[in-house]
Every structure is written in C-alpha cells, then in structure tokens.
Amino acid sequence: MKKMAAGIALGRAGLIKNVSRNSGLTRQEIAEILEKTLEEIGKALESGEDVKITSFGTFSIHHKKERMGRNPRTGKAATVSSRKVISFKASNAFKRSVLLELKGSSD
C-alpha cells in the first residue's frame, strides 16, 4: 500500500453520477436525496443531536474550551475562544470497506 497523493476531488455531480449507475433512480432523485440528507444531518447537528449512520459513521459535536494559541503568521499569542466543532468518526465497517478498495486497487 503506497502513501496517498492528494487525489482528484469527487464532487456532488461525480458522486451522483456514480450512484446512478447501479440505481433505479434518476440523477435528479439521487441529487435530491443527497441534498436533503446533508440538510438533515446539518439540522440535527445544529440542534446538538449526534447523527449515527450505520455502516458509515457518526457525526457529533465536540465542545472546545478556550485556549491560548498563536497566530501562525505573526507568532503573536492570542486566545482561541471556546467553540463547538463537528467531528466525524468513521465506523469500522466503513473503514474496512475503504481499506478493501485500497488493497484491491493498488495490487
């Protein structure tokens, strides 16, 4: 297994196209499902609710305390305010299927 290069980006359009190949749904329907999915995930997280998608992973909100940081450009010390950040933890199933793909494509 070799080290990853930055990789070509797959966007919404590419993803929808790939899904439509083995799906009975039209691209438009897939696009709509994708969009609403992202919206629902966003809404749940905004309301502080975690989102757990089986065989994919969990999106959750972590609280960060205020801390001392540094402006990397000027080197000046600055406080980083307390905040909420989004975190994603891939499920074991998702990690496994990515690794299987990797092994399959690099040999």
Partner: peptide, 29 residues
Amino acid sequence: DVENCINGIIEQMSQALGSGHRIEVRGFG
C-alpha cells in the same frame, strides 16, 4: 428507494476514497 440510495452513496464514497480520490461537497465538507 431512499435507503438503497443512501447505501449507494456510502458505497460510492468508499470506492472513491479507496481509489485515491478525495470527496468534496461544497457547503458541507
């Protein structure tokens, strides 16, 4: 249909990542 579609999206995502692509969804991440 919705369920199959979501599973399809997940599957395509792991294929894309596994073949060295990055996935970029504007406005989401």
